[in-house]
C-alpha cells in the first residue's frame, strides 16, 4: 500500500469535517474521490498532505507515519498536489514555477537539473511553448496544466489531483484526460477529486464517496454508481444526480 488513511477525524470548531475516514490506496492505481460540495474532499487532501493535522487517526505513506508532519516534509517524501484553486506563482515564469516543484519535491534537484525536468514536465502537459512567459498570463486551462506540471516535476510516488478538470471545456477535458492516463501509465499512483463524473468514472480503478465527512461507499465505479446510499447523497443536488444516473 502506498497510502493508508486510518480513522481520520478532523473538526473545525463545532463542524465535523471528517469522521473516521479509513481507506487504502495500492501502488499504481487511480483512486477517484467524489462527493457533494462541502463533503470534506479537499479537507481530506489537506490532512493527507499535512496542511492540517487531524484531530484523530493516522496517515501512513509508504509505510511511514506522516500524521501531522508539515506539508513540506510530506512533499519531500514523494507526495505532490495540484490545487483546485490554481495557485501559480504569478511573477515567476512558467518554467520557474515548475522548477519549484522539481527543486523541492522528492528528488530535490539542483537548478540546472530542475530546469531540464521542468521542460520535460511542461512538454508532458503540453505547455512547452509557454515556458518563458510569466505564469500570470496563462488562461485557466493552461494554469490547470501548470499545476499538473508542477506536481509532476516533483517526481512524486503519489499525485493528489484536486479537480484538475473543473472549469475546462469538453475538448480541454478530453485532452487533459489523455494526459492523466499517460501519467498513470508511467507508473504514478493518483488520488483525484473530481466533479466531472463521466471522466472520473472512466479513468478510476476505484471510487471513494464522501458525504458530510463520512466515507459512505467505496468500490469499482460500477458498484458505486449502483449504491443506493450514494444516489441518496446526491439527491440533494439534482444536477449531480442526473449526471450520476447518466452513467
Amino acid at each position: 500500500m502506498i497510502l493508508q488513511v486510518q480513522n481520520v477525524t478532523k473538526r473545525f470548531g463545532g463542524l465535523q469535517a471528517l469522521s473516521d475516514v479509513t481507506f487504502d490506496l495500492p501502488e499504481g492505481q487511480i483512486l477517484g474521490l467524489i462527493g457533494p460540495n462541502g463533503a470534506g474532499k479537499t479537507t481530506l487532501f489537506n490532512v493527507i498532505n499535512g496542511v492540517y493535522a487531524p484531530n484523530a487517526g493516522r496517515v501512513i505513506f509508504r509505510g511511514e507515519d506522516i500524521t501531522g508532519k508539515p506539508s513540506y516534509e510530506v512533499s519531500r517524501r514523494g507526495m505532490a498536489r495540484a490545487h483546485q484553486v490554481v495557485r501559480p506563482l504569478h511573477e515567476l515564469t512558467v518554467r520557474e514555477n515548475v522548477m519549484v516543484g522539481a527543486c523541492f519535491g522528492r528528488e530535490g534537484l539542483h537548478l540546472a537539473a530542475a530546469a531540464r525536468k521542468a521542460d520535460a514536465a511542461l512538454a508532458q502537459v503540453g505547455l512547452a511553448d509557454r515556458a518563458d512567459q510569466p505564469s500570470g498570463n496563462l488562461n485557466v486551462a493552461q494554469k490547470k496544466r501548470l499545476e499538473l506540471a508542477r506536481a509532476l516535476a516533483a517526481h512524486p510516488y503519489l499525485l493528489l489531483l484536486d479537480e484538475v478538470l473543473a472549469g475546462l471545456n469538453p475538448s480541454e477535458i478530453a485532452s487533459m484526460m489523455e494526459t492523466i492516463r499517460a501519467i498513470r501509465d508511467e507508473g504514478f499512483t493518483i488520488l483525484m477529486i473530481e466533479h466531472v463524473m463521466q471522466a472520473v468514472m472512466s479513468i478510476s480503478d476505484r471510487i471513494l464517496v464522501l458525504d458530510y465527512g463520512v466515507l459512505i461507499a467505496s468500490g469499482s465505479p460500477e458498484e458505486v454508481v449502483n449504491n443506493p446510499q450514494v444516489i441518496e447523497a446526491y439527491l440533494g443536488d439534482p444536477e449531480m444526480t442526473a449526471r450520476l444516473m447518466a452513467e
Binding site: 506539508s71 520557474e96 523541492f104
Partner: peptide, 21 residues
C-alpha cells in the same frame, strides 16, 4: 535553489510549502 524557494514563498507561502519549500 534557495532563492527560488524564497520567491515561491513571496508569491504564495502555503502553496510553496505544499511544493516542499
Amino acid at each position: 535553489r534557495f532563492g527560488l524557494g524564497l520567491l515561491a514563498i513571496r508569491e504564495d507561502e502555503d502553496a510553496a510549502m505544499v511544493m516542499g519549500v
